[in-house]
Design a protein around this nucleic acid. Structure first.
Lengths: 137, 137
DNA sequence: TATTGTTATACTCTATAACTATA
DNA sequence: TATAGTTATAGAGTATAACAATA
């Protein structure tokens, strides 16, 4: 097998992200959370009162796709919505939501630590800056 | 906005991969190809006679999901299938498929070059090895 | 005028299970 | 017994368009 793709950074980036995503999805699933839900809980925790739109912009999720996720989190009793004005709702964690957010943060920290540990030591420091550079513009 | 996720390598890995995928998807789409189709054409080009199963293993695509992709490529006249034995089919590019594979390879090379160029020079060499390490088991 | 939130819809990719035919 | 190929189906994520209400 001549694996011509395996030296292409963009291709390997996609495969590595898929592999890591599979792992974190399984970890969040053990908490009864989807990937997007867990991210939202952690971001609401750090930004109480944030709006659904602002969350979506931060996470790269479109408004239209945020609506059902927020609805699910609210009907699960993990977040509550408070009207800020006639069109915006501030989001905050409920008590149960705070527990889930804390659990998600622990699971996330475990995953991130294991991920970094797999990278050869000499490449670790450069990994995040390299990825960040790909996200600019 | 306190963006607590933006320092998490695993999270930024996912976002960066999504951003790069959006770009390469658009480029392949201009050739009338989907991402998986383009990868398959390039891999068949480098491995004439390869089976659908072997392709799937190399690309991380399950057998069940390969079937419709291969069927589409065959009905588009880009690949042809030749029975190797009673249960395996060897895949090869048609003339038109070869042109598409060449075009896909050019587009891929452009994308990969631009991707690398965005990474600060001192982190470039370590980027691929770091990603590869995440794919080992 | 631009933004928020929402509904509806469609597409892609992925995952599983089941089946046959063959090595 | 394990593998190749296929079909069917379900889930998750993502994309666009459109609309009402409000800033």
């Amino acid at each position: 097998m001549h694996d011509v793709m395996s030296e292409l950074p963009g291709y390997v980036l996609r495969r590595a992200a898929a592999a890591m995503t599979t792992e974190i999805v399984a970890r969040f699933a053990s908490l009864g959370l989807r990937l997007g839900e867990a991210s939202i809980l952690m971001l609401v925790d750090a930004n109480p009162g944030i709006s659904s739109s602002a969350l979506g912009r931060a996470l790269g999720i479109q408004r239209a796709n945020m609506a059902p996720i927020i609805a699910r989190l609210e009907s699960s009793g993990l977040i509550k919505r408070t009207a800020v004005n006639g069109r915006m709702h501030g989001l905050a964690l409920t008590g149960h939501g705070q527990e889930k957010a804390d659990a998600a943060a622990r699971v996330s920290a475990e995953q991130e630590a294991e991920l970094l540990a797999r990278i050869p030591r000499q490449y670790r420091a450069g990994f995040l800056p390299a990825l960040k550079a790909l996200l600019e513009r």
